[in-house]
Design a protein around this nucleic acid. Structure first.
Lengths: 235, 235
DNA sequence: AAGTGGTCTAGACCACGAC
DNA sequence: TCGTGGTCTAGACCACTTC
């Protein structure tokens, strides 16, 4: 009825488009039930697997919700779950300020689940955009004896990459806590900004397979020059 | 070979688990190619569609990457894309401070793509956690004549919901800009906090089908009592 | 030509909900 | 019992990459 087999778009995608456009233009309203899979198969002349694959796209995007035995229903698109792309690098240039092996401060030891005073690698980086300092980035990871650290590897590396290289563990999960805070004296000096200025603070922790923290870091972001953006999961 | 048909977990899920555990324990290393779909079918004694469905889970989570004609390869899990659940409500209680129809201030008119001075609905809310004010929430949406606003609807409504009810447009996309800022006098009074204190500022804009902005808002978050959390897309 | 991933089918069977 | 979504199959065909 509606699906063109000659199109470059696959059939399942066309099904998703057809239904989502009916939602967007109001033909299908939130709360209402859409035609059953069997009906959609007949209507679009495609197989059940194809219909289901199309629907699954819209389900994931939050446009639809289905429950076994009842049917598939239109829901409001999920605009509360948003994706933030937390990549400090990209267009920024990077300058490595220092790399040290130090005894873990209390707060870091707690975060990493290690003994206070255990040795950790502590790196400081400054990230620039067009020669202006934007982000002051500090990372901590457990120090493993006999694993030398190459400064060249650190300058542009993100936390997960450093963990993989220097602890030889593949991080598989990451958490980010987003806060606001006032700049302290040292941070202000590094970021060329006034002390006490409000800045974004991004605290990242990465975890290994066993849910053990294997690295953490904080990024202090000059708030006039950098903002985080998040977007709802689109279709 | 590995898949139990009696398990409560569907076969495709077991395939995903089997492969992801091989990645996590290092048996399959980033960069390396995994067995072809045909081989996996033979190994696990399941059909191609089932294998592919399992793989697609890991592809979406960033563990795998496949390219037509070449193969499917292990990649580092994507830890840069993180999901932040931006729901102000939930366990918070809400108090509506005011609802007004006002001429749009310059900044809001620009955000909403309307003429400066056009009428907008302006709502102010205060959100509490255990009787402490946490978030000062302000919203703006175009005023539509003849669409009365029920205060009861606003007290707990989020922006997309308000837009849907009062402009009769279903918002399908949302953007969030996350900043840090110092509290001004009015905000400090409302949040019972000192003026100049650093706070998180969440600026949300919601869009209609045609990518037209149909509402915006800002949430000022008491930073000692509230932090945003984001997590990497897990499997 | 051979091997890879990508799409699609027609139908089977199951689990669940409403009647 | 019937209609719904959820899983799975065996095989077909296509598009792309490599040799």
């Amino acid at each position: 009825m509606e699906i063109s087999k000659k199109s470059f778009k696959p059939a399942y995608y066309q099904v998703a488009e057809a239904i989502s456009s009916k939602i967007k233009n109001g033909e299908l309203k939130p709360g209402s039930m859409i035609p059953s899979e069997a009906q959609l198969c007949a209507q679009y002349k495609v197989s059940k697997m194809t219909v289901r694959r199309g629907l699954s796209i819209l389900i994931e995007a939050g446009y639809l919700q289905s429950s076994q035995g009842k049917g598939t229903f239109v829901s409001r698109p999920n605009l509360e779950e948003m994706v933030v792309n937390f990549s400090l690098a990209g267009k920024l240039t990077s300058k490595l300020l220092s790399v040290e092996v130090i005894p873990a401060p209390e707060s870091i030891a707690r975060k990493l689940g290690i003994d206070r005073g255990s040795k950790v690698i502590y790196t400081k980086r400054l990230l620039f955009y067009e020669n202006e300092p934007i982000i002051y980035d500090q990372k901590y990871l457990p120090y493993v004896k006999g694993k030398p650290i190459l400064e060249a590897d650190i300058e542009y590396a993100e936390l997960p990459e450093m963990v993989e290289k220097h602890i030889d563990i593949l991080p598989i999960r990451s958490e980010l806590v987003i806060k606001a805070r006032a700049l302290n004296k040292e941070e202000a000096r590094v970021l060329e900004e006034e002390e006490g200025k409000a800045v974004l603070l991004l605290e990242q922790t990465v975890y290994s397979q066993n849910n053990k923290p294997v690295g953490c870091g904080q990024a202090i972001c000059h708030s006039d020059r950098y903002t985080l953006k998040a977007v709802s999961h689109p279709f």
